[in-house]
Design a protein around this nucleic acid. Structure first.
Lengths: 258, 258
DNA sequence: TCCATTATTGCACGTTTATGCCTGTTGATG
DNA sequence: CATCAACAGGCATAAACGTGCAATAATGGA
């Protein structure tokens, strides 16, 4: 399959197509196929990668799978920092409470730290969190079902919302994508945001935790105003400058242990 | 399965995939499979472990998934035998099907082996199984909610049954506690048995897998007669004496690979 | 048409990366 | 405590890499 006389731009499109179709390409192969030097191919791949259209790796390039890798990596990212936040979140739970644990990896860390023999009832829509608590004899676990969104890793949507509507948790551990002292809590997914909104509305008390980079950020879908959050857990090294505005808006800010 | 001409980055994701699917891998095995030296494999495993994507152990690596604790504990027993059964179960799945995966550790093993890019819809009431499939982009996952029984580790009861009632799976991977050629399938929990009964009734086809010690055993709660089961997977070393009666009753008996 | 400007390409250079082998060390096991 | 496999680190090699540069082709105004 000899393709010749292609202009550079045209070749880029052809290369991107091949990347998408094969999932992976070798620079050396493309050089032969397009009858040009590897340098030119490398330049094209570099440009595509700069535009975020493929992932450059040693020897060639890989197709970018929107979330699959992102999720897998995100799960592992900053797990130590999230564990610290999770411990502080779990600390807010008191005996006999009905706690709703929203999805997310920070809350997953919190679920691991849920105190023993507190006669708790816990509800969640995140299968990973449920799996952690599923065999705990000291916890009454309510699993919220529905269709699971891959990039969230938890169930949202009408069915999940319907099931959740019958619950009135004492405490909500809210997962968040961004928390801005002016505009409040933000999410990256519309259905997720809607689900979280219902959670907040139906819960007696809402607490959340945020990595430093999530403070003072926002996103495409708003969940709730700052006032809906009673307590915010921040990292031990959170800059005072970032936490102060929350205190000013009436949020109780707690610092996790290092 | 010889995989050659893989770029380093590609091999890493392939290795991670294997780790996740098998739960554990040996460096020596991977070296043969990927046709490279053990040094290279070790380097790759070390990097994955540094990123927190797997756990490095002497001789290879272990999977570290969100639900790892729960899975690890439940998996401890006969994990390798169940993995063999799980692979055979996953083999029965065909493209585009709607599969219900019942709870249990054998089915958990099957969930790990569910083929890629089969455009499957999968439903389950087991959070550990859901956690395995939650981030799969190629699988539409329906999570059945309800109260989770600790000793089952999955949701059963009225709410779960209600949600399941609206589903008509093409294929049911039924978990079981005992399977007797005369009396059929048995469970150790009344609600679990009731749930399974509904599952069997609503599914077009029902298959199951049993460790040797589960054949020719019974329990307190009957799920369904032998005739409800189309296919039974048994271990490679299952005694002919134990499997024969099933064949006589019209069950297709398949043997898993060692 | 001619010339200036620009973009694209291939090449040469030094640098980085991946890999296999070697060596001494550590861990598992009897 | 002895043995052996698995291991980490160092080293050498070859391939892949980025960059600067010059040659060439394409473009566009005068």
């Amino acid at each position: 399959m000899a393709q010749m006389d292609l202009m550079a731009a045209e070749r880029q499109v052809a290369i991107l197509d091949r990347v998408r179709r094969n999932g992976r390409v070798l620079a050396s192969e493309l050089a032969i196929e397009f009858e040009t030097s590897e340098d030119t191919i490398r330049r094209a791949l570099r440009e595509l990668a700069d535009q975020g259209l493929c992932k450059r790796v040693y020897g060639g390039a890989l197709a970018i799978s929107p979330a699959s890798e992102a999720i897998a990596v995100r799960n592992a990212e900053h797990m130590d920092r999230k564990a610290a936040l999770g411990a502080a979140l779990a600390d807010l739970v008191t005996k006999g409470q009905f706690v709703f644990i929203d999805g997310g990896t920070t809350n997953l860390a919190a679920a691991r730290m849920i105190p023993r023999n507190f006669a708790l009832t816990v509800a969640t829509q995140d299968p990973a969190i449920a799996a952690v608590l599923a065999t705990r004899e000291d916890v009454t676990l309510i699993l919220i079902g529905g269709q699971v969104k891959p990039h969230l890793g938890s169930a949202v949507g009408v069915e999940a919302t319907r099931q959740m509507m019958d619950l009135r948790p004492d405490l909500l551990l809210l997962g968040l994508c961004a928390f801005d002292p002016q505009s409040g809590v933000w999410a990256f997914d519309a259905e997720d945001a809607a689900f979280k909104r219902s959670l907040v509305k139906n819960s007696r008390k809402t607490v959340t935790a945020a990595l430093n980079e999530k403070l003072d950020a926002s996103g495409p879908f708003r969940v709730c105003p700052v006032e809906s959050i009673q307590t915010l857990i921040v990292e031990s090294n959170a800059p005072r400058r970032a936490t102060k505005p929350f205190v000013a808006r009436g949020v109780q800010v707690r610092t996790a242990k290092p």
